[in-house]
Design a protein around this nucleic acid. Structure first.
Length: 622
DNA sequence: GCCGTTTTCGGCCCGACTGTTTTCAGTCG
């Protein structure tokens, strides 16, 4: 765990504990906001402890938080956190992960019924005493029981590579329904985060219910007023649990259909064979409020807060229905859309950004990291810009495609260059190539060049960076390769100082072009190494080495925050699919989303360069 | 606890849905 994540975890825990203790809600959210700010900060927070002013410059970090960050880095913990822990039974925190249970209810269980952990909660459910507690009726208890049944996966975030195909399938189903004008997923999936907590799907319908008026009776949902589109959603065969279904919104847990053979049967070995599910929220939107809703539900939360603040500064109010005039004198009244106030902008995101005086912000960078004060929309890399693959395996090591199949597949996808980089000799489990096999493969590649035209075929290797930073082939062998991708595969739990030294050694090697999956992390599964990224980036820039964004959704390594650091330093980057089978080329989209989240521009990514420029760089290292 | 050209106090985004309620609190995003 990087120090940013470790410190952020402390602040997140403090927020939860304060919540359970009934602290002021703004103090709670200030802690939670500080946790997000620290986790998302591009630089290693540990490098800032000597510079308190730099810490307080981070949005959401004030003087008290800065002191606690310094204390946390220097001592490994925070005294206040220890004090808070002493006041709250530790078992209460896990109750907060149960869907539908929030701090107020958990605190009530604790104070009114003496519940201090999950076992205690199950006990009062089983003996029926839960029904004597305030606001606990039969329906609430039934919901709670159902949530407990899903709790294992409920708190877990889902990899983008699993969430995206499901979202796209659902979008297609909604598009086929009568009365549907448009469909788009929003939320962290649209922002391209490496994992998503749930899916948000917006459906534009001609007969969207009007915004409620203050005087109207708030009828609770019955089967009668559930919209047909939402009724069709909650009746879909893969729905496992309906959480809510009303006029405008429905929520349900939806089963995932696994299609990836590499993932199947790999369920963390906890012995559960329950079908994994993810919560899907579907909202019906009127066409004239489409842009406002899309912005609102795309977020992020912090980005929305900034936009709302900008609106307020202009005497406007921004909500999911639009951007409205909202003079001071009327701010105590009901929301503008329910008073018949006409929106200044609402139909499209573009017109709302324009009316706010903000240059259009691509969804991937809506994270409240300064994107709303840019003079113009940043020019970020796109999927279509990528014209070369520099990291691909064949059946010679652990790939599923033959050399010829790999080259033809790359050609069919419009790449001007494909690089063959099978594993090096130490990767025994991956059938790494001995020197003899590597030399034979180079000859084979040279022969293939004469047979297949229209694409440049380069001979390379994914050379192991051994634990001490030494490369897995000697220099005279490396000199015969067009491309060297050097990657760490073993000793991935090295401490930060050792891993920094190890990776720096590889970066400084004169024949290395790309550092493959630099930290070795696996999303949601393995933390990988935490090298001093600022040092790696500085060295990579100096030695004209590209740091890879491995596009496989199980890796996404480097991650978004690292890319942002590299982008700011103007370091060269590569986006590679690490191809092992045909479908792996499709993972490019996830690498590009991660790159965009890191504000990467086309020209900073070697895979976008014209063939001649790419060749010139590769040859400069020979 | 953070923040500030409405600044050192008094705000802090705002709406949908649910369940248990006789008008609202809690959760979620």
């Amino acid at each position: 765990m990087s120090s940013n994540e470790a410190v952020a975890a402390c602040f997140e825990e403090m927020a939860r504990l304060l919540d359970l203790l009934g602290a002021d809600s703004f103090r709670v959210s200030a802690h939670a906001r500080a946790a997000r700010a620290i986790a998302d900060h591009p630089a290693d927070i540990a490098t800032l402890v000597a510079d308190r002013a730099a810490l307080t410059k981070i949005d959401g970090v004030g003087s008290k938080t800065a002191d606690k960050i310094i204390e946390c880095i220097n001592t490994g913990t925070i005294a206040e956190l220890k004090e808070l822990r002493a006041q709250v039974p530790p078992g209460l925190l896990e109750l907060l992960h149960i869907p539908g249970l929030g701090p107020k209810t958990v605190r009530m269980f604790w104070k009114d019924a003496g519940v201090i952990d999950k076992a205690g909660l199950k006990r009062i459910i089983d003996d029926g005493t839960i029904l004597n507690l305030p606001r606990m009726g039969a329906k609430s208890v039934e919901k709670l029981k159902a949530s407990l049944a899903f709790e294992n996966e409920a708190g877990k975030r889902l990899n983008i590579g699993l969430a995206m195909p499901l979202a796209e399938r659902l979008v297609e189903r909604f598009k086929a329904m009568a009365g549907v004008i448009g469909v788009q997923f929003a939320g962290s999936l649209r922002r391209g985060k490496d994992t998503v907590g749930d899916l948000d799907i917006l459906v534009a319908v001609a007969d969207a219910p009007a915004a409620p008026t203050p005087g109207a009776s708030k009828a609770k949902s019955t089967d009668d007023n559930v919209h047909p589109v939402l009724a069709a959603f909650v009746a879909m065969p893969d729905i496992k649990q309906v959480l809510a279904a009303g006029e405008r919104k429905a929520s349900a847990r939806v089963a995932l259909n696994f299609t990836s053979t590499r993932w199947k049967g790999d369920d963390d070995g906890d012995g559960s064979d329950k079908t994994p599910t993810i919560q899907v929220d579907v909202r019906l939107i009127a066409a004239d409020a489409w842009g406002a809703a899309l912005m609102y539900f795309t977020g992020s939360k912090d980005h929305n807060v900034v936009l709302r603040g900008l609106a307020r500064d202009k005497g406007l109010t921004l909500n999911e229905y639009g951007l409205f005039p909202d003079p001071e004198a009327e701010r105590d009244q009901a929301p503008p859309q329910s008073r018949g106030v006409k929106a200044i902008a609402s139909r499209s995101e573009e017109e709302i950004f324009k009316a706010l005086g903000v240059a259009w912000v691509p969804p991937e960078i809506r994270e409240a990291h300064g994107e709303t004060s840019l003079p113009q929309t940043p020019s970020l890399i796109t999927l279509a810009d990528v014209k070369a693959e520099l990291h691909a395996h064949t059946t010679a090591s652990d790939g599923r495609l033959s050399l010829r199949e790999l080259v033809l597949e790359a050609k069919s996808r419009g790449f001007h260059t494909i690089t063959v980089t099978d594993h090096s000799k130490s990767s025994a489990v991956a059938n790494g190539l001995s020197v003899e096999r590597l030399l034979a493969q180079i000859d084979e590649i040279h022969r293939l060049r004469g047979e297949i035209d229209g694409i440049t075929i380069l001979a390379g290797s994914e050379v192991d960076i051994l634990a001490d930073g030494v490369l897995d082939y000697d220099d005279d062998i490396l000199a015969r390769l067009d491309v060297v991708v050097a990657s760490p595969h073993v000793a991935l739990s090295q401490d930060p100082a050792t891993s920094t030294k190890r990776l720096l050694k590889a970066i400084r090697h004169p024949m290395v072009h790309v550092i493959g999956h630099p930290t070795g992390r696996l999303v949601n599964r393995r933390a990988g190494m935490s090298p001093a990224m600022n040092e790696l980036i500085a060295a990579a820039k100096e030695h004209r080495v590209a740091l890879e964004i491995n596009a496989h959704w199980m890796r996404l390594d480097l991650r978004d925050t690292h890319v942002r650091q590299a982008t700011e330093a103007d370091c060269m980057m590569a986006i590679d699919c690490d191809v092992h089978e045909r479908d792996d080329f499709n993972n490019l989209r996830y690498g590009v989303l991660t790159a965009r989240r890191g504000w990467l521009r086309k020209e900073q990514c070697v895979n976008t360069w014209p063939a001649a420029d790419l060749q010139a760089w590769l040859k400069s290292k020979r």
